[in-house]
Design a protein around this nucleic acid. Structure first.
Lengths: 205, 205
DNA sequence: GCGCAAGTGGGTCAAGCGTCCCAGACGAGC
DNA sequence: GCTCGTCTGGGACGCTTGACCCACTTGCGC
């Protein structure tokens, strides 16, 4: 075992924990399973981190950061607001489909954090960042489509996150691709009603 | 301890398990915690039920049935489709607010079932019944409002369940009543666009 | 080049877990 | 009223868990 500073081990343990949780679930993410995944002796665990719960705190932050990266690619080229929303939601669902365990891990971690007093503050922060992230995407989308949103962007962002969470939960439960696709189409219809021409039209190049 | 047939003990254990899960989370729902809640000796557990997972199967069915009862009250009096949807979503959120643990228990059970091979069939069935339930509500709403839905009712039902799940998750995380209320208002605006006058108007009394 | 803080890892601990055993108590049906 | 299947409940087993001790090794800063 090479000598690695504790802070790096801590990060490696968080990554390993996420891998285990995505593959086998939160209940299976024991200290032993995590160090086995990371290829470390058991003792490294409590040397790098004070407790299992403290590591899970790191894992949640890791997940939120990863979600941010994943969201970056959702701004597809589109002609209309409807297509943009449809594309973004389908892109998100593709991301879920490509690694369902990772997405389920997120839900499990959130639920666990809500039950654990020391972590109870994390879910609110987690969702605050999701909402912020989606709000940025909506702003960017509006400017690239040359439209504006008829309701406040933070409101619309919360609605979009509501949709992605709901779509993900149902798809995880029944894995019905067709039904999810149809739901996305209808959702895109409904949400694109909040797009309108800007008060000050942009100059057409 | 009075003599109680095993089938009744089984039902009592399922109810006790749900109480424990709602209060302390799924991880805390050990066989000992469940029998303590039910006021039974530990041995009654495996006399009434083959394994903990088998009891959780009962618990999930109990939860789904309870959700059905709760949904019955959501058909409030309303003048417009928008108000009807708004009322139903607000009623649902009130239900969540009144007992957040119970709703969280549902999510935890679903996630656990997805991770447990013997229970992996349950979530799909669970969501099938939610969708069916909401579809019935939408049919009833349409006839009492004298409208029809412009998209297939099963599609709209899935979209409504998507919204309730998403609203619930975000509210559980940040407990932001105001934001949830605003999201419901916008969602009601968006969804009510799928209501239209019927092809064959009803006779006005 | 050397001392000492930083890092390693095998072994161990008590607690709590799901499950099971079995001797005994009960009460419905003959 | 006796008997036999149903039900009770204290106890215990084997295992996994999070935690952590401590003797050892390493390599950076002086």
């Amino acid at each position: 075992m090479p000598r690695i500073p504790a802070s790096e081990r801590r990060a490696a343990l968080a990554r390993a924990a996420l891998t285990v949780i995505a593959r086998d679930g939160l209940a299976a993410a024991t200290t032993r399973a995590i160090v086995a995944e990371a290829g470390m002796p058991l003792a490294s665990f409590h040397y790098a981190v004070a407790s299992r719960d403290e590591l899970l705190r790191d894992v949640i932050e890791l997940v939120v950061a990863a979600e941010g990266v994943a969201a970056g690619g959702l701004l597809a080229q589109a002609e209309t607001p409807r297509d943009a929303i449809r594309g973004a939601l389908n892109g998100y669902l593709d991301h879920v489909r490509s690694d369902p365990g990772a997405e389920q891990a997120m839900f499990e971690l959130t639920q666990y954090a809500l039950r654990t007093p020391e972590l109870a503050d994390l879910p609110a922060e987690q969702y605050r960042r999701y909402h912020e992230l989606v709000a940025d995407l909506l702003e960017a989308g509006a400017s690239s489509l040359n439209i504006e949103w008829s309701i406040p962007v933070p409101d619309l962002a919360r609605l979009m996150v509501t949709l992605t969470d709901g779509l993900t939960l149902a798809w995880l439960a029944d894995r019905d691709d067709a039904a999810a696709g149809v739901a996305i189409d209808h959702a895109a219809d409904a949400i694109s009603a909040f797009a309108r021409a800007p008060r000050i039209p942009a100059v057409i190049a």
